[in-house]
Every structure is written in structure tokens, then in C-alpha cells.
């Protein structure tokens, strides 16, 4: 059982000092979680710490591979609105 940091991570360092298992390292192109160390904060905190401060939707996946913070959940921006705006900008 381990969380995973994936593409999208902006390397902002917010998660790294919070991890009770010291499982997060500053790697390139983005931070990584050592699956052998990650406990998903079980027994330590009510909520997994990295996923509770991460500002980027979709950058952290749970053990099933699902984003802990899916699109729209943190920013409030509906995914279809973002997609439409991006298409508009590209069309300019």
C-alpha cells in the first residue's frame, strides 16, 4: 500500500517535510515516493499528508492508481471549462 507522485508535480516541496516516513525525495523531473517506506500515514495522521497539502490535481495517486485529488477538486475549475479554455488559447 503506497501512494505515488506522478507527472504534474511542480516540485514545490510542500509534501516533503510533512511525510512521517521520510518516504519523499526531491527527484527530477518530479518528486518521488519510496513505495517501500510509504504507509499512507496509517496510524500517524487522519489524512495522508502529501495528498492533503499537494496543490496539483492528479499529481498524487493512491494504491489503486486513482488520483487522490481529481481534476476540479482543489481549484474548483470544472475540467470541461479548463479544456475549453485551453482549446481557445491554442486556436488564437
Amino acid at each position: 500500500m503506497a501512494y505515488q507522485i506522478v507527472e504534474g508535480c511542480v516540485s514545490c516541496w510542500a509534501c516533503e517535510p510533512l511525510c512521517p516516513s521520510a518516504a519523499i525525495t526531491a527527484a527530477r523531473p518530479h518528486f518521488v515516493i519510496d513505495a517501500a517506506r510509504c504507509t499512507e500515514c496509517a496510524g500517524e495522521f487522519a489524512d495522508p499528508q502529501c495528498a492533503s497539502i499537494c496543490p496539483i490535481e492528479g499529481a498524487i495517486l493512491d494504491a489503486r492508481g486513482e488520483p487522490v485529488n481529481p481534476p476540479g477538486s482543489l481549484t474548483g475549475i470544472p475540467p470541461e471549462r479548463r479544456a475549453a479554455a485551453m482549446a481557445e488559447i491554442r486556436a488564437r
Binding site: V10, C12, W13, A14, I53, L74
Partner: peptide, 16 residues
């Protein structure tokens, strides 16, 4: 200071 502890609606954390 790259980390933040809040989100503001005028900020996007992609910053490069």
C-alpha cells in the same frame, strides 16, 4: 520558498 499552505483563486502553482 516554493511551498504554500493555502490556495488562492488568483494563483496557479505552475511557476516556471
Amino acid at each position: 520558498a516554493p511551498a504554500c499552505n493555502i490556495q488562492c483563486h488568483y494563483c496557479n502553482r505552475k511557476y516556471d
